[in-house]
Design a binder for these strands. Structure first.
Lengths: 349, 349
DNA sequence: CTGAAAGCGCTTACAG
DNA sequence: CTGAAAGCGCTTACAG
């Protein structure tokens, strides 16, 4: 028996078995208005004939499509696979399909992508904004996954807490001077992570933004991170595994040993963190949990439109939920090197 | 004017303007059965009222949902973002939405994922199989993106040619002894890439599979790749950027300089290839082109079911298309080190 | 417990 | 060029 898109219809089942379509519908939906024996007989026959309900017919009648949209302004986000998988799984559990919406990295196209999803009749959507983009005027329930400090946020990882975790870990190992590395000054996520790191008082930190401005200042080139390190830092804590990978390979290439000479940490626990040498200490978010909450809140809003806050741009009127992050300790961190800090400072000249 | 899912219906527009719904429908679909002035007036009013056609109504009437499925057995595949983005873009251009289907890496769940998409009424699907899984009994048009050597394939990158490209590049630099690194013996993609590499006669190659068997043989551990290199190889050509990253960091960690001591190449041109030090020479596939072809063939089959080959499991009856790959030369490759090969062999003891 | 009927919103022959 | 009517396949009050 093959699943089939143009197979028998409800009426066919009803006719074959000699009952009304209403009864078949009730039997199949299990609403219990049909005697057990008959219901069983109908189900058997439906299976036998390979019946698959028409989603169009159902959607037209019920007014709900059973599909939600997943919007990521930047699908190239390295976390995308994890997010997509978690959302797809949670949505499937809740009986929803997931339509993807991409704006190819261009902020202007986000509205179009969202519009396309609305046209396709999604019942709601999950939006993971990037770079402070805001969700505007969407006339359907929207769950936002960003940071606790983002207005309109629905659920997010505790990025601040994650930063704290990393900083505490380094402090516990004995590090005192830590170089913080960010990539995008506008990112709420990155700023929250950095704020968390800075909140650990044992550490003296300094922040380096490896962004366009840094390049423009002519500080790019192979050696500059290594040079910066000579100022006496014993560890680099980055806001993403990508930045950590960058720092790790650049330092290795310049003869630094990790973690003996310098500890390096990342964020997000991307798939390659454990295959590199040394494997990367990182912080993971519980995507399954976050996705589960987003879908749960979204479904509640879909079923009960009163949950949509009319005054506040249709965002969900649910308490913002924050999910703790977890430190994944690996080989890229170790106690600080035994060395005279002033000696290193001297090398600067 | 906000896009709206529960806004005015066709009948509302018709009533407001004083024409029949048929005329509104014709005007909006631009089939040209309506006078230009009236059509323009209708369009203006529809815009003004924020009319969005009900996809359910249309789907039920036309028998087509305007949605296709994208199935990746392993959504954690690092290429997923690229594939998803390219497919989403091509599908959007063709007027289709994209529903994602994931089987969470478990082969057994692939059929379920496909079944769910069929239930949701997709008009067709794009499947990127992994590890020799086959597409079975799907009663809708399917375009398969795999390798030219996979039965039922629709379109794919020329993985063999990509392997050749890498090998020729290394040969042209002067390399003669190259270690080939694979990760999964079952993968058609990897085997095609390796076959292409081996086809370049100037090179003496040997293949190392860094898979479960290798680990079981007790050859894991930090130094073994480095040890293997002492047999006289001057370059490592891997079947994926992940393996290249692994080799690169492991060798760097053990004091090898890349590319001075050994050249390393990857495959797929993942986002981080250019941020690591040294940046990684890789091979990229033209995803946009591949996705474009897949969608084109799929749409043709959707519109003309005769294109579906009944005898051959519903796969598309279109000529298999192969898209050339491109070498992206970066800093991880250089002429072979000047050294006495026998001397290195001696070091083994 | 079961059935007859209405209707979700569209598009498409068919008339005029 | 425009309209009246049918019908896509379902579900849901409403009767019985």
């Amino acid at each position: 028996m093959t699943t089939s898109r143009s197979g028998p219809k409800l009426a066919k089942i009803a006719e074959t078995i000699g009952v009304s379509t209403a009864t078949v519908s009730n039997a199949l939906s299990g609403k219990g208005r049909v005697s057990d024996e008959l219901a069983a007989r109908i189900r058997r026959k439906a299976d036998e004939l390979g019946y698959v309900a028409s989603s169009a017919g159902r959607a037209l009648r019920t007014g709900r499509s059973g599909v939600i949209g997943l919007v990521l302004p930047d699908i190239a986000n390295p976390l995308f696979p994890q997010i997509a998988q978690a959302i797809e799984h949670a949505a499937t559990q809740a009986g929803y399909g997931v339509l993807i919406g991409d704006s190819r990295g261009e902020i202007g196209m986000q509205t179009e992508a969202i519009g396309r999803l609305v046209e396709r009749g999604v019942d709601g959507m999950v939006v993971v904004p990037r770079r402070g983009t805001r969700v505007i005027d969407i006339d359907c329930p929207v769950a936002v996954i960003d940071t606790p400090s983002t207005p309109g946020n629905t659920v997010s990882a505790d990025h601040f807490g994650g930063g704290e975790l990393v900083a505490r870990h380094l402090a516990a190992l004995g590090h005192r001077r830590v170089l913080l590395v960010g990539a995008n000054r506008e990112s709420n996520v990155q700023n929250d992570r950095l704020a968390g790191m800075r909140s650990v008082s044992e550490l003296r930190t300094e922040t380096l933004w490896l962004d366009e401005r840094w390049y423009e200042a002519g500080q790019g080139g192979t050696l500059s991170l290594a040079e910066k390190m000579r100022e006496g830092f014993t560890a680099i804590a980055t806001v993403s595994d990508m930045q950590a990978l960058r720092a790790l390979t650049e330092l290795q290439r310049n003869g630094w040993r990790i973690p003996e000479d310098v500890s390096v940490t990342g964020f997000d626990d991307l798939p390659w963190t454990s295959i590199i040498t040394p494997s990367l200490t990182s912080v993971r978010m519980d995507m399954a949990r976050i996705a589960g909450i987003a879908i749960e809140v979204l479904c509640a809003a879909i079923l009960d439109p009163a949950k949509i806050d009319q005054t506040d741009r249709k965002t969900l009127r649910a308490p913002i939920q924050t999910v703790a992050m977890t430190l994944v300790e690996r080989n890229s961190t170790a106690p600080p090197p035994i060395r005279d800090e002033t000696a290193f400072k001297g090398e600067l000249a």
